[in-house]
Design a protein around this nucleic acid. Structure first.
Lengths: 192, 192
DNA sequence: TCGATACGAAACGCAATCGTATCGAAAGTT
DNA sequence: AACTTTCGATACGATTGCGTTTCGTATCGA
């Protein structure tokens, strides 16, 4: 291949700018190529040479997100559940990781293809890992045999997600929320 | 007062158009006065005569939402909790009522004033009612004396909200989800 | 009936963003 | 050294929406 090769640095700067803006809460509709170019310190040409439109840019950018999947210990259900929620909590504090929730919650209706790819790539693997922790807990007799695993997962993750979204990027999710959530869920609300 | 009075019908049409569009998932940023005017069958003048900008229009429109607050029976905590979640579930099926979640989840970061007013007007009263149900349950000895009311509320409502957002406007939230959520929460996950 | 105000429609100038084109300079290959 | 491609910058016409103004008509109170 002849000619000047494409700049790796420019490409990374574009993707970084895109992810940062989405993390800040800019919707896909609002995200302007011009803003991305400016923020990345790059000409618009350089973006359009690589991606033909905004959605492609967003999809490819999100695909570069490599969120480390926590590895559950497998012996203590309580500890594993807290660990998963703690990952959600700490990630919510970093701008970049807010992409995940922002895309999942805000863009599902309007960009179904984007949402579907993102769901398969990021969300479902995590849900499955979480599900396995609960299943192991049931199998080990640590959790009720008739526990509704899907509902249990929804209660814990839904609480974290709602809290994250409601509190906004400025506020922090309380450090002890994962522990408190898991303990309340394990004990049950009812007096005995 | 002299002169032609302002048209009640036009005003209602404008507010309805605004709420419908928000319910459909149009963000406040995307919501254009021109689109509202067209949809309401009204001139832009008629809108600007009443509201000086988009945010005012949205705030006032949301303020007209009179979401019937369920009246808890006060005797059976389980029944009251299920009733609250059931209201959330059934409302999520109607376009108009999706305004509540759409605004609360998507616009908090970008329109903090709007979010604050909306929170005081719509969200907090409901949260408080929900909180009271749990408090009464504790006082009556039906729930654990050391129950973390805030965490309990977060688990139940967060689960409903997440499920609603994740499933999108097309899908329906399962009818039995409120019951399953409340029963799991009351029992606790742990084997005894 | 008359004067005041609201009505819907249309046009205004302004700003943002779109996707494309053009530029000279830079950075590679052959 | 010659050639090719990308670089960032800049300008382009098109489109959209803003908030304002103007228009002739409609609808009220006095």
């Amino acid at each position: 291949m002849r000619g000047r090769p494409r700049s790796e640095r420019a490409e990374k700067a574009i993707v970084d700018a895109t992810l940062d803006m989405i993390g800040e809460g800019v919707t896909v509709s609002e995200l302007s190529i011009e803003a991305v170019a400016t923020r990345a310190g790059v000409g618009k040409t350089t973006i359009y040479r690589r991606w033909s439109n905004k959605e492609d840019l967003v999809v490819d950018s999100l695909a570069t997100l490599r969120l480390p999947m926590p590895e559950p210990g497998g012996t203590d259900v309580r500890a594993d559940l807290i660990m998963f929620l703690e990952v959600m909590r700490s990630e919510s504090g970093e701008l970049r990781n807010r992409c995940v929730t922002n895309i999942a919650m805000n863009e599902a209706d309007r960009f179904p293809d984007l949402y579907r790819r993102f769901r398969e790539l990021v969300i479902e693997p995590r849900r499955e890992a979480f599900r396995q922790v609960l299943r192991r807990g049931v199998a080990a007799g640590e959790l009720r045999a008739d526990l509704d695993v899907e509902v249990a997962m929804l209660m814990l993750t839904g609480a974290m997600i709602s809290q994250t979204k409601m509190s906004g990027p400025a506020h922090r999710v309380p450090e002890d929320l994962p522990t408190r959530l898991v303990d309340e869920a394990l004990r049950g609300f009812r007096q005995r």
